[in-house]
Design a binder for these strands. Structure first.
Lengths: 144, 144
DNA sequence: GGTTGACTTAAAGTGCACTTTAAGATGTAA
DNA sequence: TTACATCTTAAAGTGCACTTTAAGTCAACC
């Protein structure tokens, strides 16, 4: 931890700032996602805008983009504004895939909720109502 | 494909019925998630209620449950109704974890959407407005 | 009756995204 | 100055959820 006020980060400090580990940052760098500067002694240092960049990468990653898709995105970005159509198309495809998954996962949640409610009702009224889960689901129009 | 109408499935037919592959079904069986019957020649066969069971497992899996959590669930299920509290607690924990992830992922989507819109606006009004993405985000109160 | 395709097992391989290890160099604090 | 934390690299290891391979058995169709 250098106590200079010039808003640069060692890899350890930067890792804390973005919520990753130093090895993960080196891994992302090896994959071409980040390119920190080096001080004269060969050590990496990161700057404030790198924080925003990594956080943005993590948002994209969180929508389902793989490391190799992120790498492609980064390569296009480095080429300049003429690759904006490619980047836009990639993000739109990521969004479309995401929305498909999102709908599926909401259905999974519905079934999970139904099962939890079914167990809770079974626990509450212990002695009667032997309705099974499949029948229970049908009462709500929740299929499969 | 046997053409008997007795609603039993070979592993291949069952795989198609539930949208998995035969090797995956054998893998799930090895993990203790399914227990098909065997015909006299040693071959697995599955029945109609196994379809519902696997589909339900896939819903739980889709909410984030790991194979080992599903296995624990299956073990408790085999013990009978006295393990309903444990099963309920597990599902409630799965749901809680799911909801945390769900909120995070919605935030990721918001940033992805903002970026797509930012690119689209940049593509539309080609020559003016050099507003950067960080500034753009702040206009909507979308942080990080 | 022969060929094709589906089944059986056990074990090894795959892909992804890290994580850990090893061995060494350097910076910081007491 | 000594000790300890942090950094460096390259390479090997991990965990999860399958997937593939190999070698063989068996059943149905022509």
């Amino acid at each position: 931890m250098t106590t200079t006020t010039d808003s640069t980060y060692s890899i350890g400090d930067f890792a804390k700032a973005v919520g990753l580990t130093a090895p993960t940052l080196r891994y992302y760098e090896a994959q071409g996602l980040i390119e920190p500067h080096r001080s004269t002694n060969g050590r990496r240092y990161y700057q404030e805008n790198d924080v925003n960049w990594v956080k943005f990468l993590l948002h994209l990653k969180g929508t389902g983009m793989s490391i190799s898709e992120l790498k492609q995105y980064v390569l296009w970005r480095a080429e300049g504004d003429e690759t904006i159509p490619q980047r836009l198309a990639l993000l739109q495809k990521v969004k479309a895939d995401f929305l498909v998954q999102f709908n599926e996962v909401q259905h999974h949640l519905q079934i999970l909720n139904d099962k939890i409610n079914w167990y809770e009702e079974k626990e509450a009224g212990v002695t009667d109502d032997p309705e099974d889960f499949a029948t229970y689901l049908k009462r709500f129009g929740h299929h499969e």
